[in-house]
């Protein structure tokens, strides 16, 4: 503890350097801006929507984009722009909460597999590989068939498919740390396995995993929209982006603006997080920076 405090005063220099490098990278700045827009919409959605995203107004149905309705209205007269802003809240809350839970379970299982006995490691790895061998969407459809489509089912699916990836990464890191000198030293001092894992291995594993997990947010957002599009995700009338796309696809000839509007936030979110994540990874991984 004292050591890290002693090191801290030097850290701002590295942080400033990092910030400068981020500002020099146009793609990173673009990514950061897009992510900021999405996160802002997600947090302040109820206060910034121009219309009530749930309010039906049949006389205004299927109006093309105009100054009053920027992205037009849908077949029930709801303002699509308001629904999209509200949708960012659903997308982000599903994305962040499921990844958070998957990360907790994945790290715990990975630590157990990496530090525990060999047979347990083999068993858990076989389990992870088997779950991993289900294509994500197909796993989602299977679970939705069994449990019925709902938000809980959707979250369960995302957690199920993300957990093995985090568990595997944690396991690999744990295996390499397990026999490192400092862990052997603590073990010889008589520390319990729980203490070794929780205090001495976990902090070294969490950092890189958090970056990887944040890069998974766009794929989870896309998975949520995709499963909702297929009718297996968030039920109506919630304004999920996948729902807006699906309703738009049914009216693609009469109201093409609906699918255009439904796709834009997905593109903004995925591009934003990916550009930002890629740049961050390149900056934080010097080995990669040298090659690329």
């Amino acid at each position: 503890m004292q050591l890290s405090e002693a090191v801290l005063p030097a850290a701002p220099g590295a942080l400033t350097l990092f910030r400068r490098r981020l500002a020099r990278d146009p793609l990173a700045m673009l990514g950061l801006t897009l992510v900021a827009i999405v996160v802002f919409c997600g947090i302040f959605a109820p206060w910034i929507v121009p219309y009530d995203p749930f309010k039906l107004s049949i006389p205004d149905k299927l109006q093309p984009p105009s100054l009053t309705h920027w992205f037009g209205t849908d077949n029930l007269g709801r303002d699509i722009f308001s629904r999209i802003i509200m949708g960012s809240r659903i997308a982000l809350s599903v994305g962040i909460s499921t990844i958070g839970i998957a990360l907790c379970i994945g790290i715990s299982l990975g630590l157990i597999a990496g530090y525990g006995p060999r047979w347990l490691d083999n068993f858990l790895m076989l389990l992870f590989d088997s779950v991993y061998s289900f294509p994500t969407v197909i796993m989602g459809l299977t679970v939705a068939t069994l449990l019925g489509a709902s938000v809980t089912t959707l979250m369960f699916v995302v957690i199920l498919v993300q957990t093995p990836a985090y568990a595997r990464l944690t396991r690999t890191a744990t295996l390499s740390l397990k026999n490192s000198e400092y862990v052997q030293a603590i073990r010889s001092l008589g520390a319990s396995p729980f203490r070794i894992i929780a205090v001495h291995i976990l902090p070294n594993v969490v950092g890189p995993l958090l970056i990887i997990a944040s890069m998974d947010i766009p794929s989870v957002v896309a998975l949520e929209a995709g499963l909702t599009y297929l009718g297996m995700g968030i039920p109506p009338p919630a304004p999920s982006w996948g729902r807006i796309l699906q309703e738009g696809y049914n009216l693609i000839r009469e109201a093409p603006w609906m699918v255009v509007a439904g796709g834009i936030p997905l593109i903004i979110t995925t591009l934003g997080f990916t550009f930002l994540g890629e740049s961050l990874r390149d900056m934080l991984d010097p080995r990669l920076r040298r090659i690329v």
Binding site: L27, A225, I252, P256, V260, I267
Partner: peptide, 26 residues
């Protein structure tokens, strides 16, 4: 480099729907 990061991240179903809108409907 820019295009590849962009195309990797955009979900295939969004691409599919935009393709239909442009090449089949319009």
């Amino acid at each position: 480099a820019v295009i590849s990061v962009g195309t990797i991240s955009i979900p295939s179903f969004v691409v599919a729907i935009y393709l239909i809108l442009f090449f089949a409907i319009e």
